[in-house]
């Protein structure tokens, strides 16, 4: 009897939880649904009737006599008209390639620099260690617009303006990644290091063969967040590049959002194109991210 009551309570409790979760996740999703819906509507349709989650091409009666779409026929190119137009209106293929190349290069850089630095900060004793680490952390407190112009000057001196170097090299260090890895390295028991060192392994070897594999989950997190950061950066590439061959996806996207005469359908199609790759990436990595956050020990 008591067990049954408990079960009922549990069931109704979990129904409430589900209800809360469903409502809130719908709220979270609503903007994206709206984005998708708008991306399938043409400008005339949007100006005529701005509200409507169902684009006219998907609505029953498309092309019927007496409707605004009279005589039109449905085809793949008609359905994806905005996507096709958005893709063709700018060198998006090139933008995507640039973005992917820059993101991957940053990932390599960030993993290498963070692993080395975090290892030193976590497991080595040397004078000035804590001060250097503090300086690193302080860098996180300075917003990007502050160092934009001096950085531009440095890039100009290096003749790096409008090159991949400008987009990659300064972003091959992420202080936050060093911080995360350092926290993690600190949790690895000293015995492991001692054992390896007795076996004659050099420090470097210990790092790559023992420590790094133990840090897989957190490395995945770092990789994902580096990709997200690089993929979504806007102000930096805007200022550091000027030819279309060098520009990444976000700049192409921002060009759709003109002050005057914004074409919402096109803009939403382009936005969708820019968001989807990262969503796919996240979908495959989400388990790792969550478990690594748990194991990273976000406590001192």
């Amino acid at each position: 009897m008591a067990a049954r009551e408990g079960m009922i309570r549990r069931i109704s409790g979990s129904t409430t939880i589900h209800l809360l979760l469903i409502i809130s996740s719908l709220t979270m999703l609503m903007p994206f649904v709206w984005m998708l819906a708008t991306s399938f509507r043409d400008t005339m349709e949007i100006t005529r009737e701005p509200y409507g989650f169902v684009p006219q091409i998907f609505a029953p009666g498309f092309g019927d006599v007496g409707t605004p779409t009279e005589g039109q026929t449905l085809s793949i190119s008609r359905i994806f008209a905005n996507y096709i137009e958005a893709w063709q209106s700018a060198p998006f293929g090139r933008y995507f390639l640039n973005t992917i190349f820059v993101a991957l290069s940053c990932v390599v850089g960030v993993v290498v620099t963070s692993a080395l630095a975090a290892y030193a900060f976590a497991r080595m004793e040397f004078k000035g260690r804590d001060i250097i680490f503090m300086v690193f952390l302080a860098m996180m407190m300075v917003p990007e617009p502050v160092y934009l112009v001096p950085s531009f000057i440095i890039m100009a001196r290096l003749h790096w303006l409008d090159t991949y170097y400008a987009l990659i090299v300064p972003w091959t260090v992420k202080v936050f990644s060093i911080f995360l890895l350092r926290q993690h390295f600190k949790t690895i028991p000293q015995d492991l290091f001692d054992a390896a060192t007795i076996d004659g392994a050099s420090r470097f070897k210990v790092l790559w063969t023992i420590v790094m594999p133990l840090s897989r989950a957190i490395l995945v997190t770092i990789v994902i967040f580096t990709i997200i950061g690089s993929w979504n950066s806007f102000l930096w590439p805007l200022v550091m590049t000027h030819s279309p061959e060098m520009r990444p996806i976000q700049i192409g996207l921002a060009a759709f959002s003109q002050e005057e005469g914004t074409e919402y359908g096109l803009m939403m199609a382009a936005t969708t194109l820019s968001v989807v790759p990262l969503l796919i990436l996240y979908f495959f990595a989400q388990k790792q991210i969550i478990s690594s956050m748990a194991s990273s020990g976000l406590k001192e």
Binding site: T113, L116, M124, I132, M139, Y147, P150, V169, V173, I178
Partner: peptide
């Protein structure tokens, strides 16, 4: 140890610290 932090430190120095101090 300094060798280990060198790559990160060099970049932080050139592309963060110097620009920030310049600013």
């Amino acid at each position: 140890a300094l060798l280990y932090i060198l790559p990160a430190a060099a970049i932080v120095f050139t592309f963060r610290l110097v620009p920030i101090l310049a600013a």
